[in-house]
Design a protein around this nucleic acid. Sequence first.
DNA 1: AGAAATGTTGCGCT
DNA 2: AAGCGCAACATTTC
Length: 258
Amino acid sequence: MPELPDLQVFSYNLAKLFKGKKLVKLNVVNGKRIRTPAAKLKKACEKSVLNDVYREGKELRFEFKNGNIIGLHLMLHGALKVFEKKNDAKFTIAELLFDNGKGLAITDFQGMATIYLNPKEKDAPDALSPAVNKKYLAEKLNSKGNIKNLLMDQHVIRGIGNAYADEILWDAKISPLSVANKIPATKVARLGKSIKTVLKKAEKQIRKEHPDLISGEIRDFLGVHNSRKKESPGGSKIKNVVIGGRKTYYTDEQAVYK
DNA sequence: AGAAATGTTGCGCT
DNA sequence: AAGCGCAACATTTC
């Protein structure tokens, strides 16, 4: 359930913990959703040194010196836990043991988190990539679809989930009830800016509040997608509606284009 | 104490 | 025929 800014912080902290360490052992505990056979994963990465950990869309990637990459998608409820010696985490899917004596447990009570070797390149650009600019957005928003659904569509932009879609639309002052191809060009440009600023600001905030975070999600600072708030930072009443099967928070500060 | 939350996939309807 | 809604996944948290 972590979203892009959380994952960004996790990747930074995981790199701090494990970069330059050799993977001694990789154990698959619950393989039902693991897309690469356990033996193949082990063979590809065991005994190799971890080169880097980074985020791509909603995935975390563990890149090894031998060129192999483990892709991890936490889905709704996946979580990470660092352990020493013994992993006592419940619902473990896999564990990575490094030569500094520390281990990383990947858990998911729903068993939905996925792991795969060498994930293939995706077409859609990452939300923080320079490729997500006003030209790209204008092209992709030429659609009769709902704007929030498009923002969350991983085939359009990778990395934006339910909570940050609401935050970005509020920041851009566009109602989530809007139809994509009715949004004027100037507002599309503003949306492009909001994508970057909202996500980057959130990452900074999370890092400030929880410098060593590798699990969970921090949402207490969100302006509108926040069940504890009645009013937006601008003082407008926060309303609810369901879009794409998910709870959507917005206010009348946001213009509806239909 | 019962609903809500969270992402993806795949299916069926319009 | 693009776009939407729904179910399934399974447990924790309010």
